[in-house]
Nucleic acid binder design. Sequence first.
DNA 1: TGGCAGATTTTA
DNA 2: AAAATCTGCCAA
Length: 213
Amino acid sequence: MDLQAEFEALGGWDRRRFLRPAARVARDLLGAWLWTESDKGPVGGRIVETEAYLPAGDPGSHSTAGPTARNGAMFGPAGRAYVYRIYGMHLCFNVVTGATGSGEAVLIRALEPLLGIESMVERRAGVPLLQLARGPGNLAQALGIDLSHDCQDLCPASMGTDHRGPRIAFGAEPLPAHRVAWGTRIGLGKGQHLALRACLRGSRWVSARRALG
DNA sequence: TGGCAGATTTTA
DNA sequence: AAAATCTGCCAA
C-alpha cells in the first residue's frame, strides 16, 4: 500500500491505548505514526524506538520522587505530552500513560521519516536522512516539538485547523511479537538494569544498536 | 567503530 | 553536581 494511503487509512488517535502500563504502551507504539502539522502538511513518520518509565520502583524515571514543576505532565491524564529540556539544549518528547496520577510515560526515541521529509531536512540543516529523527533530541527538533507542547493533549475530540502539536495514530494491526526487540534504556544513571527500551527489530532507524534481545 | 570531551542550562 | 543528549574528533 502507498504510504500516503496508509497514513490516511489510520483511524486516528485513541486515548484508551494510552491508559495501559508504560511498558505495554512502549511496545504498542512501535509501528504507530507520530507527526506534527505544518504549512505543508503532516511531518513525521513511523515510530521505531521507545522507552518506558514506570510509575513506581523505577529509579530512572523523573517521576520517582513525586510531582515537581518539570514532571507535572507525567502525573496528568494519559494521552498528553510530557516535553522537557535536557542537558540545557535538547528536548525530549514523551506520551503520558496509565492511570491519572500514577506518573508514568513513554519516551519516543526514534522514528522512520515518512511524511514531510523536506520540512525535517530544513529543520535539521544538512543532516543525513538516516539521522533526521534518530535519538529523542533529534526527533523533537525534526518535528518542531517545543516546550509549549508540554501537557498538551495528543488525543483531542476534534482537530481544529490551528492544531500544530504532536499527534499519534496507531496502525490497524498490532505488531507481531517477533518484530519487537527489548534492551536496556539509554543514558540513565539509575535504573539501567531494567529492559524497558523497545525497538522495531532490525530497523535501520533506531538510535543505538547495543544489546537488544 | 568506539570512546571521549565539550556545548549549555535547568533541576533538585 | 548531575542530567532520559548530540556532535565532532581522535585512535586503532
